[in-house]
Design a protein around this nucleic acid. Structure first.
Lengths: 155, 155
DNA sequence: TGCAAATAGATCGCACGCGATGTAGTATGC
DNA sequence: GCATACTACATCGCGTGCGATCTATTTGCA
């Protein structure tokens, strides 16, 4: 009960011990990941959430705000100001749809598309910092995606 | 190459595909976890980072700001305002050490200690929302902790 | 047609999270 | 014994993240 060894063996979601909690591992690893990204993205002049928006738009351009939100699990109070900042940076355009004036279509500018080439070194840098085999990383990723699905069901 | 199936099989840290990225899985799962916590902590009247500070102080009271920061991987620009808010809530006290006036010692109030009882239902609620076996959760946790260590080394 | 309900974003307010920098107190070197 | 470096926090500025609420537009249906 009081030994050091039990500190990380108990139920990772049913204890008030910080070291046991999955949630804290998740939270603190995300902070560490963010730190790695900040450095790698400094060159591109974007933040991590902005980089995520770029990833989405590089895959498929001209999306509604809500479509970007669905892919990134972000809401309009987060996205609207974020997209405005990216528009100011000259990376994208926000244009109201003529057919349905409620919708705002977000499209990359030439500059936004051009950033993709410079971004190609980023995943390699992250992989390097993670120092794991691709297989291990893929395994964690898939477990997290499953966990995410269950958390969103029950929230 | 273009099939749906390959979307989550490639190197999870060396691609510009959103779905493949471990980092995004980490980020979005953390957001989902936060959503679950927000509901569970509403009753206690604290945020998730505030809850983490309580976890730390429940384990060991009367810590320096920097000691809390080491345990939570947070810096003083985050902690100082956060602790001030918690002080206003009446959960803790921030007192400069007489022996070394640079240090601020953070100690729980009676109210802060008392919150521990009401917090005991929180881990169960998270466990329930996660809908995994304790073994699975412990496995993810340990993999994340390893990853965190490597990311912090290389950042 | 006409108006309530639904939809898509925008805005407000608050709480992080941290790089850069400032400040007060303490230790160190000569 | 005194300048200098170092330490522990504090502050500033900016960018998220989101619950609550608002606005404008469209849809649905009586």
């Amino acid at each position: 009960m009081t030994s050091r060894q039990t500190k990380r063996t108990a139920n990772p979601a049913a204890s008030l011990q910080l070291g046991e909690q999955l949630c804290f591992a998740l939270y603190s690893t995300m902070l560490a990941m963010n730190k790695v990204y900040r450095k790698l993205l400094l060159d591109l002049g974007v933040t991590y959430p902005q980089y995520l928006v770029l990833l989405v738009l590089w895959e498929r351009d001209a999306l509604m705000v809500s479509e970007i939100g669905e892919r990134l699990f972000l809401e309009s109070p987060t996205l609207t100001p974020l997209l405005k900042r990216m528009e100011l940076l000259g990376l994208l355009r926000r244009i109201r749809d003529k057919n349905d004036e409620r919708q705002v279509i977000v499209s990359l500018t030439g500059q936004g598309r051009a950033l993709r080439d410079r971004a190609k070194v980023v995943p390699g840098g992250v992989f390097c910092a993670a120092g794991c085999s691709p297989k291990e990383l893929a395994s964690i990723r898939d477990q997290l995606i499953q966990l995410r699905a269950r958390l969103l069901e029950n929230s």
